[in-house]
Amino acid sequence: MLKINNLHASVEDKSILKGINLEIKAGEVHAIMGPNGSGKSTLASVVAGKEEYEVTDGTILLEGEDIEELAAEERAHKGIFLSFQYPVEIPGVSVTNFMKTAINANRKAKGLEDMPANEMLKLIREKSEMLEIDRKFLSRSLNEGFSGGEKKRNEIFQMAMLEPKLAILDETDSGLDIDALRIVANGVNKLKSKDNAVLVITHYQRLLDYIVPDFVHVLYNGKIVKSGGKELAHELEEKGYDWIKEEVNA
């Protein structure tokens, strides 16, 4: 599904990613952990195609295709979805209107007509029920005045609506209360299949109790310095990052 080779990226001439190698196969769940500022969100943004980040070396392949030259929206059309660590506010644009625009933009890219209104309504109803989202919420301006947890739940709602091939969840768990965490995680699990993949970025093992990863990677100073199974997350939770930093610096 996703294959990242020796990826180097910088922003404003500051080098942030320094040689990332990562392969995610269809049907897999990967988790990335790592200290603050290590480059996790940067990696997510680079894969999603944010322009201000410059890829200085390496390649990103999506289903074998080099996506380097593709604009962010074209990557989205190919099935990359990013649940933002800090979702952006768009005043005056309702969640529903935003979703409608997004879905139809994706359909257009595939040469399809706009989704008929009743189908759209059905989809919205189904997905909002799954994530226990109040209907009133959908008429509010996107992310404007949403609580931290509401923003995150809304990100997963969008993911559910768009059904991506590769979902990157950047700290989707932060800000969610215990019940919300369970609801959101269940939502993600329901969307999982053998044809898609999930990359979870998190600081806490707790989310991984729900969304169980096949692999856990530690990102430190722009590199993946350790990879393992789900038990690695437990180990990190217990011991923190110092021992890894020591290993790297040794």
Partner: peptide, 19 residues
């Protein structure tokens, strides 16, 4: 804001119109 829209598959022109 524009990147957020782009990420959802909305091109920049449409994103501006939306905003």
């Amino acid at each position: 804001q524009i990147f957020y829209c782009n990420q959802r598959g909305i091109d920049t022109e449409k994103a501006i119109a939306l905003i």
